[in-house]
Structures are given as C-alpha cells and as structure tokens.
C-alpha cells in the first residue's frame, strides 16, 4: 500500500508540475508557439537559486521574486530575438515550434558550458547542486516531517492559480490576452497591442516555469538536465489541458503526479514494477488523452474520425 509519503509527494510534485505546465499552456494558447525552450526555464530557475545562495543561504522570500524575474526576462528575450521576428515573417506554428527547439538546444548547452566553466573557475560542484534557501515552517506530526519546501510549493501553486484566475477574468490585460488567444485577427482590430500581449504572456509563463524549476531543485537537486528529465510530465499535463485550459492543466499536473507516486508505489509492491519506469505513466496518460479526447480546436488537428472509434462512439 502507498504510504503517507507518497500522498504528500503527490501534492508536492504535482504543485511543481502545475507551476511549469500552466505556463506552457497559457503561452501556447496565446502565442501559438509550442515552446520547447520552456524546458530550459526550469533549469535556469533552479540555477538562479543555486547561484543566489552560493556564498551564503538566502531567504526563500527573496529568491522567489528574483527567480521569477530572471525566468520572465529570459523568455521575453527569446521572444524578442527569435519568435517575434519569425512571427513578422508569418511563420507557421510548425516553424515556430522548430525554432523553439533550436533555442532549447542552444540554451541547454550554453548552460552546460557556463556551469562547467564556473565549476572549474570557482571549484564548486555545479552539475549536481542544491540551492541553500532558508525556508521556515517545518512541521513534525507523529514522526512525520512536513518540510517548509513542501508548503512553499503548495503555497506558490495556490497563489499562481489565484493570480491567474483573477488576472484572466478581472484585469483588462488578462482579458486582452484571452481575446488574442481566442481570435488573433479580431484582437488586432479592436486595438489591443498584439506585441505587448505576447511579451506579458512570455513573462508570466517564463516566471512561473522558472519558479517551478527552483522548487524542483529543492525537492530533488539542480542538474543541467533538470528540465529535460521532466519534459514528458510537463507536456503530458499540458496536453491533458488541451494546451488550452488552465483548470484542466491543473488536473493533468496532479493526475500525473499521483500516477508517478501513488500508482507506481502500489504497482511496485504488487507486481514488482521498477520505479524507474515512472515516465511511462505520463506517456500512457498522454496517449489515452490523445486517443479518447483528442484536443482538436486549439492545437490544430483534423476533423477526422477513425472508423473503429466512430463505431464505438455512435450512440
């Protein structure tokens, strides 16, 4: 049977996935770029926290805004340097996606090189680091330690959710973002600055993902591959949200976290499944979602129904 730890980890990891996946979802929804550079953001966030706390531990309340800013500014810079130019050239979503892949590779190995350099120059272990953040609020209940990291992750996820809800439904800018997402041409006519909407979206998406990276580094540790190891989970969570819906992305993030913690622990005990097969769950969920509830509409897609499915669906 899964222990209480697995349940705790589900919420912990789920919150981290949520922070990152929600950025992926909103950035795709507004800009129509499937942003592979999103993966870099988590690594960047983690290492920003590591570098901040290199000489002496810093308080998490200080790290959070800094990490958010770094991620947000990084993503705005990428948009400025690459995406905005491609959009001016009327590039298709396919081309934008490919370019984001180029950014991903470039930044990933740039980070590798930079960290390697720092490691040699400063003589500190960089390829496997841990940010030293001061996080209070540890609770001990009946021999069980609930760390402050956990509460920070939960709090950040909750705050992000509330913020996004208020932002999209109450503020003028948020409504502009939604308008652009639903109908780019119409939004242009009604005088909303398209370019500003893009930058704001990237800032939010980048900041959230970067925070998520920091939280992951606290949960596990920071490595240059940090983002890469979580690709599948993030994308799967976003796909469950149809790359469109924030609430469904939330469901996706926690579902995958549950599958990876609770379900795998159960299977490990009952049928001896190796824990390292973890990513298969996310993939399985992804396939099921694509097959059963294909996210057409937002992500493009064909108005086409396979014969077998059609027969099954016909009531």
């Amino acid at each position: 049977m899964p222990t209480i730890t697995e349940f705790i980890n589900t919420f912990w990891v789920g919150s981290i996935y949520f922070l990152s996946a929600v950025g992926l979802t909103i950035s795709y929804r507004v800009t129509r770029v499937l942003n592979f550079a999103h993966i870099n953001l988590m690594t960047i966030g983690a290492y920003t926290a590591v570098l901040l706390s290199l000489s002496s531990p810093v308080h998490v309340a200080f790290a959070i805004p800094v990490v958010f800013l770094v991620g947000g500014i990084f993503m705005m810079a990428v948009h400025f340097a690459v995406y905005s130019r491609l959009m001016e050239l009327k590039a298709t979503p396919l081309v934008l996606m490919i370019s984001s892949m180029g950014v991903w590779i470039f930044v990933k190995f740039f980070l590798y090189g930079l960290l390697g350099y720092l490691q040699k120059a400063w003589k500190v272990e960089m390829y496997l680091a841990k940010p030293r953040l001061i996080v209070g609020g540890e609770i001990k209940v009946e021999g069980l330690t609930l760390s402050g990291d956990l509460f920070t992750a939960l709090a950040l996820a909750t705050l992000a959710a509330i913020f996004l809800y208020v932002f999209f439904s109450r503020t003028k800018t948020g409504k502009a973002l939604r308008a652009v997402a639903d109908n780019p041409d119409l939004a242009e006519i009604s005088g909303i600055s398209h370019s500003r909407v893009m930058y704001i979206t990237w800032f939010i998406a980048g900041g959230l993902a970067s925070l998520s990276g920091m939280m992951w580094a606290l949960f596990a540790h920071a490595t240059p591959e940090l983002g890469d190891t979580l690709i599948l989970q993030l994308f799967a969570a976003s796909v469950i949200g149809g790359l469109y819906s924030v609430p469904l992305t939330t469901v996706g993030a926690y579902t995958i976290a549950a599958a990876e913690n609770i379900v795998i622990a159960t299977l490990h005990e009952t049928i001896g499944l190796e824990v390292s097969y973890r990513p298969f769950f996310a993939f399985f969920i992804l396939l099921v979602v694509i097959l059963v509830r294909p996210p057409l509409g937002a992500g493009g897609g064909l108005p086409y129904r396979f014969k077998v499915l059609r027969r099954l669906m016909r009531r």
Binding site: M97, F235, F283, L286, L296, G299, G301, F306
Partner: peptide, 22 residues
C-alpha cells in the same frame, strides 16, 4: 495523426525517450 503538429511532436519526442529508458 489526427491531432495538430504540436501534439504529434510531443508524442514522438516522448516515445523516443521512453524507448531509451526501456
């Protein structure tokens, strides 16, 4: 094949990674 290029890209990328893990 029925879903958009974004979903297709994600699925195949994941497939490659899973195969390696396997």
């Amino acid at each position: 094949l029925r879903v958009g290029p974004a979903f297709f890209g994600i699925t195949v990328l994941s497939f490659g990674e899973l195969l390696r893990i396997f």
